[in-house]
């Protein structure tokens, strides 16, 4: 096969191909790279890569170049960690959730005839579509369909993670269990569609008033659960009271009726010898007490 033939192949493949010398100057830039960057190969060949892409001049990228040039190993720039190396527009804007093309890149050594490493190659793969699918799948797996907040499965795995992390560093961790008062009456009097609207309103309001580091999930029918990392029970009381007063003020308008609901809340905080289950159990017990002492209030275990 001639070099000309190989070049034809390199210019028609559907991924980026870049060759760099030991000084990180561009030696080859295939048509895919030219097309997506808007930089024709005549303009860029012989030039330092970092002149055109200064954001790549990081300790991490340089470390990988050095490693490949001295060990002849491969370096992998995963989409998960890096999102992309080259800031290109996605191939199509249709149905993608990313402003920039998501890339998975591989770097490897190029050797001369005496087996010494003369430079490196970089392969750039467009994985935007895959990353979009992954994001959708993750969402479907972690979000509650009706309310759009996290589902119970996500809460439980997150609780496990946070539980271990907080116990390791002996940091405070709190949990709030929330239950809508007399929710069955809403369903019975106004129908399930109205009940759904109330659930959405409570979920939406709760997730908008909690702090950025907190999580709220739909735990059961009309039960919600908030996970408060790095938060003492005393601080959790303030969060709980804030949620309670906000929910109390919501006016749900459904088919001409104004429906107001209140919530009861149970709070628990991480203690020695706790497990995720006992932490949940105590919040649930506190919630039960809140219900039995008159509702529309929080009880701290």
């Amino acid at each position: 096969m001639t070099l000309n033939e190989l070049t034809q192949v390199f210019d028609t493949v559907n991924f980026g191909l870049v060759v760099l010398d030991r000084d990180i100057k561009i030696q080859y830039w295939n048509r895919w790279m030219a097309m997506h960057s808007g930089l024709p190969s005549e303009q860029i060949i012989g030039e330092p890569l970092f002149d055109f892409f200064p954001h790549l001049n990081t300790p991490g990228f340089n470390k990988n170049c050095k490693a490949v040039l001295s060990f002849g190993n491969f370096a992998f720039f995963s989409q998960k960690l890096h999102r992309f190396l080259f800031p290109f527009k996605p191939d199509s804007s249709f149905g993608y959730r990313f402003d920039l093309m998501q890339q998975s890149c591989t770097m490897g050594p190029l050797r001369s005839d005496d087996n010494s490493i003369s430079g490196l190659f970089l392969i750039v793969q467009d994985v935007t579509e895959l990353a979009t699918y992954e994001q959708k799948l993750v969402e479907m797996n972690t979000k509650d369909v009706l309310t759009g907040i996290y589902n119970r499965r996500f809460l439980e795995s997150r609780l496990q993670e946070e539980f271990e992390r907080h116990r390791r560093h002996s940091h405070p961790l709190s949990l709030i269990m929330i239950d809508i008062d007399f929710f069955k009456k809403v369903n019975d009097n106004y129908g399930h569609q109205c009940g759904d609207a109330v659930l959405q309103a409570v979920a939406g309001k709760t997730s908008s008033v909690i702090r950025k580091t907190d999580f709220v999930a739909r735990y059961g029918g009309e039960e919600f659960c908030c996970l408060l990392p790095e938060t003492s029970v005393t601080a959790a009381e303030i969060v709980a009271e804030n949620i309670r007063t906000h929910i109390e003020q919501i006016e749900n308008i459904f088919e001409g009726n104004t429906i107001k609901v209140t919530i009861s809340l149970g709070i628990s905080g991480l203690m020695d010898k706790d497990s995720p289950e006992t932490l949940l159990k105590r919040a649930d017990d506190a919630l039960y007490q809140a219900k039995h002492s008159g509702r529309n209030r929080f009880v701290r275990f």
Binding site: A67, F71, G72, N73, F74, A75, F76, R111, N115
Partner: peptide, 18 residues
């Protein structure tokens, strides 16, 4: 990746392989 690459790379280099 780097640790494995360094060890395997140096070993295969000494043995005349890439």
């Amino acid at each position: 990746n780097i640790l494995i690459g360094a060890c395997v790379g140096k070993l295969s280099e000494l043995l005349g392989d890439a």
